[in-house]
Design a protein around this nucleic acid. Structure first.
Length: 528
RNA sequence: GGGUCUAUGGCUCAGCCAGGUAGAGCACCGGACUCUUAAUCCGGCUGUCGAGGGUUCAAAUCCCUCUAGACCCGCCA
């Protein structure tokens, strides 16, 4: 490592951008503008993995710019994609639209021009919150404007060759029989029920019939219509196995990441780009899917789909960026429980960046500082941001539910963690508080109270309910326990169980005063 | 049938993709803080880094083989 020079900022992103540049040099292509692309699904609720594709592509864009090249990110929404199944939480009325393009389905929530745009907007909103800049394009416009017509023609003319190649590379044989193009049926509006069987090259028209199709476990009925569609004008789209290639050439895309689920499609598309369209395919990187935490019970009412919207309730935008930029391989199981460590890890990186924490290995130090820069989208803050351990904030938030921000802040100052109240810390408390409320649920402890303890609790309740604030409450509680022949250790434990539902907690005297002694008095009384 | 990933202290995992004395969080144990408890600080925790081989001055990290598990593709976008 010592004899190797460090590329860029030392991260995998720099390495990837470097590879891309080397390849472009070898190909001898014009490098005035290097476009990177991310495809956005528009048929389901976008989760954090879909964000990842765009965020990482944006990282490569940043790295290219850092190397002195011009670059831009194209965010392409495939909204001609058909609706295959109704996502959970969406109305059943969508059923009549199964098989239609998502851009042709009305938005069930009535806030966008279509179902597809509703979904895409959720993702774009996530990107906006992270500060990712992009040039948005959609399939509907792309096909309506005929931007891919040259490529469609070339692909359909070579469909036999392509069909064979698809079979050879992936084992999928349907395109030896049918053409890789789906027209929208002019009679019933569906796209997944059409089968194209002949291309009339001179007229650039395709013959299709609309018939029943099975998508997963769903049956979608075709209408039996048979017609011709003009591929330069009429609505329809290329099959995925060849569509990327067409788009890459039409938009001059030089980089696109992909998830392993579409590995086969990318393989075919690379071949189509290189051999049929004669456009050298973009540089790629493959990443693993994010999976839900297996076996762990995540409440159904909260939903176990990790979206940027829900993540941001508990974690900062930077925690998402850190998750996505720290590495591209690995990272399989993902859940909200990863947020606390990512929050703390970001802070650690910031301390490394500003030299508060020293890393011995210089290469690793460079890499970590580089990671910090990417997480800040290469626009780093000038100074350290005030920070308190997120886990500590969760602990404190669990204890203080009312007037949370004030009381937690007060405790932090008591502990000497902070000198003054800080607005950034208030935001952290809000997020950690949400987390504590929604996830950090403690199992209810069964409270076992014997007679002696009951008597002691009664005395304490009376004392707390009195008008005068007791002196030295901590010691008084201790005395009450002893006087009633209750082990102080057990007495304190029961108090924690009653007040906090845990076996332990903060120093109890001051704590009771913090949350209000009369309130505690009532709570204790309810156990007598 | 094809492919990818994963395997590291009790638990969950980081570190691997640019090789340089094995880490974190949690759990647990011990100590300090006026005999209980939090926080804080200190210390501890017995790791053949899945197995075997190879490359190297040096391997958790790179290469090959194997084992176990997970996931993806072979419907579709």
């Amino acid at each position: 490592m010592s004899e190797q020079s460090i590329i860029g900022k030392g991260t995998w992103i720099d390495k990837l951008a470097h590879e891309l540049l080397e390849r472009e040099k070898t190909l001898g292509r014009n490098t005035d503008l290097l476009r990177v692309e991310s495809g956005l699904g528009a048929s389901g609720v976008p989760h954090i993995g879909s964000l990842g594709d765009a965020v990482r592509a944006y990282g490569v864009k940043l790295a290219l710019e850092n190397f002195g090249y011009k670059s831009e990110l194209i965010a392409y929404s495939d909204d001609l994609d058909g609706l295959r199944k109704i996502p959970e939480g969406f109305p059943d009325s969508l059923k009549e639209h199964l098989g239609k393009s998502v851009s042709a389905i009305p938005d069930p929530f009535d806030c966008h021009d279509s179902y597809g745009m509703h979904m895409s907007s959720l993702l774009l909103e996530g990107l906006d919150k992270l500060g990712i800049k992009y040039d948005f394009r959609r399939a509907k416009d792309t096909y309506e404007k005929g931007l891919l017509k040259e490529q469609i023609h070339t692909i359909l003319e070579n469909s036999k060759k392509i069909g064979e190649k698809i079979s050879e590379l992936t084992g999928q044989e349907k395109f030896q029989q049918y053409l890789p193009y789906f027209p929208v049926c002019t009679n019933c509006d569906k796209i997944y029920t059409t089968e194209s069987f002949e291309y009339i090259s001179d007229e650039k028209k395709i013959k299709y019939r609309c018939k029943d199709a099975t998508i997963g476990s769903q049956n979608i009925n075709g209408c039996g219509h048979e017609a011709e569609a003009d591929v330069t004008k009429d609505l329809g789209k290329l099959a995925w196995k060849v569509e990327f290639a067409a788009r890459w050439q039409a938009f001059d895309i030089r980089f696109e990441a992909y998830g392993k689920d579409i590995m086969d499609s990318v393989k075919v598309n690379d071949w189509v780009a290189d051999e049929i369209l004669k456009f050298p395919h973009p540089h790629h990187v493959k990443y693993e899917m994010f999976l839900d935490k297996g076996g762990k019970k995540i409440s159904k009412s909260l939903g176990n789909v990790v979206t940027s919207q829900t993540w941001l309730k508990y974690g900062s935008p930077k925690s998402i960026l850190l998750l996505l930029y720290k590495r591209i391989s690995g990272a399989r199981e993902l859940g909200f429980e990863d947020i606390p460590s990512l929050m703390d890890e970001y802070n650690e990186l910031e301390n490394i960046f500003f030299g508060k924490i020293k890393i011995e290995n210089p290469a690793k130090e460079t890499k970590m500082k580089g990671l910090y820069e990417y997480v800040n989208l290469l626009n780093t803050p000038k100074t350290l941001t005030p920070y308190v351990s997120y886990r500590l904030l969760i602990e404190l938030s669990r204890i203080f539910k009312e007037k949370r921000t004030d009381l937690v802040m007060k405790k932090l100052i008591d502990y000497g963690v902070l000198k003054n109240s800080e607005p950034q810390i208030e935001d952290l408390i809000t997020m950690a508080g949400n987390y504590a409320d929604d996830f950090d649920l403690q199992e209810k402890v069964d409270v076992q109270i014997d007679d002696a303890t009951k008597k002691a609790l009664g005395e304490l309740a009376d004392l707390l309910g009195a008008d005068d604030e007791p002196d030295d409450l901590q010691n008084t509680i201790y005395q009450i326990a002893k006087k009633n022949n209750v082990q102080p250790k057990d007495f304190f434990k029961i108090l924690y169980q009653i007040i906090l539902s845990t076996n332990r907690g903060p120093k109890i005297g001051p704590f009771i005063l913090d949350i209000g002694r009369k309130k505690v008095s009532q709570t204790l009384a309810s156990y007598l």
